[in-house]
């Protein structure tokens, strides 16, 4: 993957020098040409084509923005509803993610999504403790986090 990015940048720079115009548009043209070349030659270069992974990152960002919008609407509903018809609590979420980077991403995503807020991580990094606005649908929250976020993060990092 680093090899492919460096190759792509070298092709873009070469394109800039060959066309003798040193500005951003010609760099971008060279970058696109390099990406197309790498895509055509993907069977002869080690590792998968790196823009696949970039596409997965973009998908993760779209998923994240959608969840952020939904969580805000939910919070605003709770803010303006008279009375307190929610029942908060802290539940434990066992996670399969290993590295610090992955766990940081997961906690950030959890904190900005509907009704959940990460409070703590166990010492051996395999259980997250999450404060939920409504503990009643705890099973559903665990399933949603496992199915969407963990899967998306694994696709990006592995």
């Amino acid at each position: 993957m680093p090899l492919q990015i460096i190759l792509n940048l070298i092709i873009a720079l070469m394109w800039m020098f060959l066309s003798e115009s040193y500005n951003f548009p010609s760099f971008l043209t060279g970058f696109i040409i390099g990406a197309i070349l790498l895509f055509l030659l993907r069977r002869f270069i080690p590792d998968a084509f790196y823009l696949y992974r970039v596409w997965k990152v973009i998908k993760l960002i779209i998923l994240f923005s959608k969840e952020l919008l939904l969580s805000n609407i939910e919070i605003v509903k709770w803010v303006y509803k008279p009375g307190r018809d929610y029942n908060p609590g802290i539940f434990a979420l066992p996670t399969d993610l290993k590295s610090n980077w992955e766990i940081t991403m997961l906690t950030s995503l959890i904190s900005l999504t509907p009704g959940t807020l990460s409070v703590a991580i166990s010492d051996n990094n395999d259980v997250l403790y999450i404060h939920a606005m409504d503990i009643g649908d705890k099973e559903e929250a665990i399933r949603a986090i496992k199915d969407t976020f963990e899967k998306a993060i694994k696709e990006v990092t592995r």
């Binding site: 307190r84 018809d85 929610y86 029942n87 908060p88 609590g89 802290i90 539940f91 434990a92 906690t107 950030s108 959890i110 904190s111 900005l112 807020l117 990460s118 409070v119 703590a120 403790y129 404060h131 503990i135």
Partner: peptide, 29 residues
Amino acid sequence: PVSAHMIGRAAHSSGVEVWTKDGEQRDEY
């Protein structure tokens, strides 16, 4: 999210209890 996590953790370490509607503590941490 990082600052929220740290504030929540600090509050929990200094013994702030979770508010619940029916008074029963649900705190697996």
